[in-house]
Computed example of a mutant assay.
Amino acid sequence: MRFNVRGENIEVTPALREYAEKKIAKLERYFTESPNANVHVNLKVYQDKKTKVEVTIPLPNLVLRAEEVNTDMYAGIDLITDKLERQIRKHKTKINRKSREIGRKELFVTNGNVSKEDSIETDNDIEIVRMKRFDLKPMDSEEAVLQMNLLGHSFYVYTDAETNSTNIVYRRKDGRYGLIETV
């Protein structure tokens, strides 16, 4: 893994860089061979002394991504590593099974450094408990945001009146709104 550690409103010290690289490099034990990936680590400090750690690891057919807000940068890096490990364990069985079905080499370790309880997880963890159908009404993004707020949801799917394509508006963690346009 090649690391790209950068800071926003913070100078990345050699000790901080080394700590982040050391912790995230431990994830390599989950892979059959060391992945040829560029690991992007983004460290931010806000005015209220909160820190945010974002890690993105693009892999073939999978992108591992996690972010954590904490008052201590080092604790945030520890929590990010835990989140990424959970993601890897969650996807390990499913991805290895699909790889075997189509005859590709497995991406994750099947045995070895991973504990027994980690390999017990199956695809049964994902269960759809409710299904809804609705008509997409043509509207603009502002009306979609109003509808979303009226319903008390965190996202809303609609048909854009101008482009006639399906779009999604959503409420971001910072309280503002985002728009996803389909192509």
Rank of each mutant, 00 (worst) to 15 (best):
K22W: 09
I24N: 07
K26P: 03
R29L: 06
R29F: 03
Y30E: 08
F31R: 04
F31P: 03
T32V: 13
N38Q: 15
V39G: 01
H40P: 00
V41W: 03
V41L: 03
N42D: 01
N42Q: 06
K44V: 07
K44W: 13
Y46M: 05
D48Q: 04
K49V: 07
T51M: 09
K52D: 02
V55A: 05
P58N: 06
L59W: 07
P60M: 03
L62Q: 07
L62C: 08
V63R: 01
A66S: 13
A66H: 01
V69H: 09
T71H: 13
T71I: 09
M73N: 04
A75N: 06
A75W: 00
I77V: 15
I77S: 05
D78P: 00
I80V: 15
D82F: 05
K83L: 10
L84S: 02
L84W: 04
Q87M: 01
Q87C: 00
Q87P: 01
I88A: 03
I88K: 02
K90D: 01
H91Q: 14
H91I: 03
T93I: 01
K94M: 10
I95W: 05
N96P: 11
N96V: 11
N96S: 12
N96C: 08
N96D: 12
K98L: 13
S99P: 00
S99C: 11
S99A: 15
R100Q: 14
I102V: 11
K105W: 00
F108M: 11
V109N: 10
N111L: 12
G112S: 06
G112C: 06
G112A: 09
N113W: 05
N113I: 01
V114I: 15
S115A: 10
S115E: 11
K116R: 13
E117D: 13
E117T: 11
D118V: 06
S119C: 09
S119Q: 15
T122A: 12
D123S: 09
D123G: 04
D123M: 03
D125C: 02
I128E: 12
V129Q: 10
R130L: 07
M131A: 07
M131C: 04
M131K: 09
R133H: 12
F134H: 10
D135Y: 10
P138F: 01
M139P: 04
D140L: 05
S141Y: 14
S141A: 15
A144Y: 07
A144G: 11
L146S: 14
